[in-house]
Design a binder for these strands. Structure first.
Length: 573
RNA sequence: GGGCCUGUAGCCUAGCCUGGAUAGGGCACCGGACUUCUAAUCCGGAGGUCGCGGGUUCGAAUCCCGCCGGGCCCGCCA
C-alpha cells in the first residue's frame, strides 16, 4: 500500500542498520522523495564516517520494496525514491473514494470543549480579536476532522463593568458619541455599532464624573443582589450588541454550538457558590483590596496584592464568574481548550491553578495563546471613537473582489464574498499564533502570491479542466490510466497528496492552523507548476486519464484543506 | 523587580519542538512567457553577518548561557 510509506522506510532502515530508528529520522528531502540522516548520529558511536555507514545501510536494504524503488547513500544520507508507478493508481482511487473525507482520522472518543472569541458585547468585532475567532473556528474544524468530538462555546460577558457603564448611559439618556457616529456612519443601523457609539460617550462620562461612576457601581450591586430590572438593563445591552456581532460571525461562517451568558451564573447562584466554597476552604480571605486568594505557593504571585475574586462592595469580578463557568464546562467534556490572547496568559494560569489545585479537577485544561495584531500608523482610541471593525475590512475586501471579477468576466459576482472572506481569513491564519501581526490593509487585501485567492484560483483551474474534459472522474476506470513515466511535477503532486493526513495531524497536535495554511499554499504552487508543464486534455489517452485524476485529486485536497481553514473554494473565478 | 512571547534580504514570512546536503516562499523591483486546459498564473534576475557574543557538537537558524531591540502580563477591567 502507498499509505504509511514513511513507516515502511523507517522499518527498512531499522532492519538494515540493526538499531532503533524513529519516524522522525525519515524526512522530506529536496534531493529525494524521502531521506534519513541517521548515519550521522551513528558515526560518533561507531567510530566510522557517516558516508561509510550510510553506504553500509543502503547496501543492506532490499530493493525494490513495495512502493519504493530504490535506496541510495549520498554524502552520508540514505535517500529513498518512490515507485510512483505502483502508487499512483491506488492513491488516486483512494482520494477519489474518500472525497470530502480524504485525510479524516478515525474517531478518538474524546470530547473537546473549545471556547473562543468571547469578545465583550460593547462594540463591533475588532480586527485584533478576529484572530481569536479564526483560530478557534479553524481548530474546531481541524479537531473534528481529526476524530475528536468538539463543542464550541462563546462566553458572553453580559454583566461586566463596561456593559454596566453602557446601560447606565442609556438610563441617563446620554447621547451617543458624535465623533464615533461620524467615523462609522455607514454602519449606524447595526446594533453593535450603536452600542459602541453609546459606549464611547458613557465611558468618557464614567472617567470624568465620579457621580456617574458611583451610579454604575450601584447598578452592578443591585443587579448582583437580585434586582431583576437592574440586571436586565445590563444584559439587554449585551443581547442587543451580540445581535449585531452575530451578523459578522454568520458572514464569516463561524458557528458556535453554545452562547453562554455570565448572567446565568449570577442568577443560578453558581458564582455565590464559588465564593462561598473558596471562603470555607480557607484559601481565600478578605483584604483591603477585596476578597481574594494568594496563589504564591503555586508560583503565581501578584505584584502587591492577592488574586481578587470579589470587590469590597461584594460584587463579583470576572474571575469568579469564569471559575463558575469552567466548573460547568468541565462537566461537559474531556478536554477544555480556550483560545486566548497572550495578554491573558497570567489570568489563565491563575484560573487553571484554582481549578486543578484547589477544586481538584483532573481534566486537561489548556489555552491556545496568540499574539497581538498591531496596526501600522493608525492610532486607535476608544476615547476618540475609533476602532478597527471587521465589518469595514470585509466590505473593502468584497469591493476589491467584485472589481477583479468584473475585470475578468469569468465568475459571477456572487463569489466575491467567498474570495474576500478567504483572503482575510488566510492572511490572519497563515501567521504562526505566537507571532505579532502588523496589520496592513494592502497585505490583507492582497489577492496574489501567498494568499487565499491564489489557492482558490488553482482550485478553479482544476474544476475547469475536469469540466472541459467531459469526463466524470468518479466513473473513470483506473485500468485505463498510464501509471508509468510521471513528469517530475506529477511526482511532486503525488508527494503532496501523501502528506496531507500527516499535515492535519500536526496542525491538530500543535494547535497551529498556519501549518495547514502553509501546506495548502504549497500544494497550490505545485499544481500551478504542473498546470504549466503538463498538458492534460491534449495528452495521450492513458496519460490524460492519469492527469485528469490527479487534477481531480488536487481539486479535492485543496477544497478539503481550505474548508478546514474555514475557506470555501469557488468553481470559477 | 518578576514572568511569558518575539528578532531570518527594503517589507512580510516558512523552517526552530525532534541539530545535518547550496536557509524555502511571498510582496515590492528588473527582465521574459498569453492564436495552446483561466496570466488572480509561470520562468529568470537581483536581494541574507538567520539581532549580537559565547558554549555544546564532526555539524547550529535550530540546543544551552549571556547581552541588545520589540511586544505582552503581574488591575476592586475583561
Amino acid at each position: 500500500m502507498y499509505a504509511d510509506l514513511r513507516e515502511k522506510i523507517r522499518a527498512l532502515l531499522e532492519e538494515a542498520s540493526g538499531v532503533n530508528v524513529s519516524l522522525e529520522d525519515v524526512t522530506d528531502s529536496d534531493k529525494a522523495d524521502y531521506a534519513s540522516a541517521m548515519a550521522f548520529r551513528l558515526a560518533a558511536k561507531q567510530g566510522k564516517s557517516p558516508v561509510q555507514i550510510a553506504a553500509g545501510i543502503a547496501s543492506k536494504i532490499k530493493m525494490p520494496a513495495e512502493g519504493i524503488l530504490k535506496a541510495e547513500a549520498v554524502n552520508g544520507y540514505v535517500n529513498f525514491f518512490l515507485d510512483y508507478s505502483s502508487i499512483v493508481s491506488p492513491l488516486l482511487v483512494d482520494v477519489r473514494n474518500k472525497g470530502d473525507s480524504y485525510g479524516k482520522a478515525q474517531s478518538k472518543g474524546i470530547k473537546i470543549v473549545l471556547e473562543h472569541t468571547s469578545i465583550n458585547p460593547s462594540g463591533p468585532l475588532h480586527i485584533g480579536r478576529l484572530r481569536n475567532c479564526l483560530l478557534g473556528d479553524c481548530l474546531a474544524r481541524v479537531f473534528r476532522f481529526s476524530g475528536y468530538v468538539v463543542e464550541t462555546h462563546y462566553f458572553v460577558n453580559d454583566v461586566g463593568k463596561q456593559i454596566a457603564i453602557i446601560a447606565q448611559g442609556f438610563r441617563r439618556g446620554i447621547e451617543p458619541d458624535a465623533e464615533a457616529l461620524r467615523n462609522y456612519s455607514n454602519y449606524g443601523r447595526k446594533e453593535d455599532f450603536k452600542i459602541f457609539f453609546e459606549y464611547v460617550a458613557a465611558n468618557k462620562k464614567f472617567e470624568a464624573d465620579p457621580a456617574f461612576a458611583s451610579e454604575v457601581q450601584e447598578l452592578i450591586q443591585k443587579a448582583e443582589s437580585g434586582d431583576a430590572a437592574a440586571l436586565s438593563d445590563i444584559t439587554n445591552v449585551a443581547a442587543r450588541c451580540l445581535e449585531g456581532q452575530k451578523e459578522i460571525y454568520d458572514f464569516l461562517s463561524v458557528r458556535f454550538d453554545y452562547f453562554d451568558y455570565e448572567s446565568t451564573y449570577i442568577r443560578n447562584g453558581a458564582v455565590a457558590k464559588v465564593l462561598d466554597f473558596l471562603r470555607k476552604s480557607g484559601c481565600a480571605k478578605d483584604t483591603d483590596k477585596g476578597f481574594g486568594l494568594d496563589l504564591k505557593e503555586y508560583g503565581l504571585e501578584r505584584r502587591d496584592s492577592v488574586t481578587i475574586l470579589s470587590r469590597t462592595d461584594g460584587t463579583s469580578v470576572y474571575l469568579s464568574r469564569d471559575i463558575a463557568y469552567h466548573l460547568d464546562k468541565a462537566d461537559r467534556g474531556d478536554v477544555l481548550i480556550n483560545v486566548l490572547g497572550e495578554d491573558h496568559k497570567y489570568e489563565f494560569q491563575e484560573l487553571k491553578t484554582i481549578l486543578t489545585k484547589i477544586y481538584g479537577i483532573e481534566k486537561p485544561m489548556e489555552a491556545v495563546h496568540y499574539s497581538f495584531v498591531n496596526f501600522e500608523g493608525v492610532e486607535l482610541s476608544t476615547r476618540k471613537g475609533q476602532t478597527a471593525p471587521v465589518d469595514k475590512l470585509l466590505d473593502e475586501a468584497v469591493k476589491k473582489a467584485e472589481e477583479e471579477i468584473e475585470e475578468r468576466g469569468i465568475a459571477s459576482k456572487s463569489v466575491a464574498g467567498v474570495i474576500a472572506v478567504g483572503a482575510v481569513k488566510y492572511h490572519i491564519l497563515k501567521a504562526s499564533p505566537s507571532k505579532t501581526i502588523t496589520f496592513r490593509w494592502q497585505e490583507a487585501l492582497s489577492f496574489e502570491g501567498d494568499a487565499a485567492p491564489y489557492i482558490q484560483y488553482a482550485h478553479a483551474r482544476c474544476c475547469s479542466i475536469v469540466e472541459k474534459s467531459g469526463v466524470n472522474p468518479a466513473a473513470l476506470d483506473v485500468r485505463g490510466i498510464d501509471a508509468t513515466r510521471l513528469a517530475s511535477e506529477e511526482e511532486k503532486l503525488i508527494l503532496f497528496f501523501l502528506r496531507f493526513p500527516n499535515v492535519l495531524e500536526r496542525t491538530a497536535a500543535e494547535r497551529r492552523p498556519n501549518i495547514l495554511a502553509n501546506y495548502v499554499y504549497e500544494l497550490a504552487c505545485a499544481f500551478s507548476k504542473f498546470y504549466k508543464d503538463c498538458p492534460v486534455l491534449s495528452a495521450d489517452e492513458g496519460v490524460k486519464n492519469r492527469r485528469l485524476m490527479m487534477v481531480d485529486a488536487t481539486r479535492q485536497i485543496i477544497a478539503n484543506g481550505l474548508l478546514l481553514l474555514g475557506i470555501e473554494s469557488p468553481k470559477k473565478m
